[in-house]
Nucleic acid binder design. Sequence first.
DNA 1: AGCAATATATATTGAACTGATATATGCCAC
DNA 2: GTGGCATATATCAGTTCAATATATATTGCT
Lengths: 196, 196
Amino acid sequence: MSVRSLCLAILNFGDATGYEIRKETTSGSFSYFGDASFGAIYPALSRLEAEGRVTVREESQHGKPTRKVYSITESGRLELLDALMEPPAADTYKSPFLLLALHAEYVGPDVLRKAISARRKHLQEELALLRSIPHEDEPGAVNWVRDYGIQCKTFALGYLDANAQELIEAATRKHDKTSRPVSLPGQNTLFPNAAE
Amino acid sequence: MSVRSLCLAILNFGDATGYEIRKETTSGSFSYFGDASFGAIYPALSRLEAEGRVTVREESQHGKPTRKVYSITESGRLELLDALMEPPAADTYKSPFLLLALHAEYVGPDVLRKAISARRKHLQEELALLRSIPHEDEPGAVNWVRDYGIQCKTFALGYLDANAQELIEAATRKHDKTSRPVSLPGQNTLFPNAAE
DNA sequence: AGCAATATATATTGAACTGATATATGCCAC
DNA sequence: GTGGCATATATCAGTTCAATATATATTGCT
């Protein structure tokens, strides 16, 4: 998802500053759709403004830096709609936790327990964020997306709670026998298609 | 997850070419841990070789280009173990599908149905990939990670199957009343913390 | 008092990465 | 013959990241 589309989508929900857009994509509701750094957001906003897709006004505020608040224009909305009409790319899920879990026998049970605890905490934080989104009275897309997220994260947390001990036991058994990473038995176990 | 660590982790499972590493991170088992392009993989492998973390040998093969097969060294393994000992970063999940779902009322039921169908297909492909990983006889990390993935994707697919119609109906109701994206009612519904 | 951490803000930069492309060999389908 | 696909290495212009700088203000600690 391009930073451009991400900015337009966020602004379509309401006016925002570059700082707020960044915040939404890293720790807010929009973190489920995309991520963008300051180095990408500000140039994208500048281009969008130059092309008439957004407008910007400056607001002075006491005790804080001057804000530049961006608003989407009608042509910005049309561009967003066009982007949404395209078939969406595949969802992506990247899990440093699972990579560590895959090496559970090598890192050992203590490191593993810490990682599991951190993962639980992350999941709980995500659930808290999702639950903080107000539930709309009328059934619609916002509720649907919110509930989808809550159900999936709840399942993942429940599965982790129910099965973490099993992984810790496996890590404990094998860690006693292994002092450092070596090639796993059955080389290429993870590469059923790879030439070797 | 750095490309460097990703390469080391893959090579720890078995020797591989740059091309194979790229393939694993985009469409193979390692796509759950990280992603990397050719433009990042080759420089990373060059640096790793220069630093003694991997070795490389050339293989001629009839009918195909010469292969450069990379193997991890002992110091490469130690670096990987060090990296794994760090607390893992939070998992990330980015869903262009859910962004489209959030705008279901604006794109309308036809586009939505196509997106749902594509999402189902993606999920089924992921499940097929996970199920293609051989089940090890002895309980351990590989089985655990594999089953974790299978259970979560199966849940997500099941929830989508059970609830997609509800979203389509909401999209149909509201699409009849709306011809283009406008600010959603209750501005900043998604931003309970945002200043506005 | 001074400093670090944090929050709200805009803006920038060197390093890293992406997506596309080039090159090469071979196979298969139209 | 051509295009598409697969296996391979390698590269590059454009984009983005992570860190940093600047600014105002507050809080907590030494």
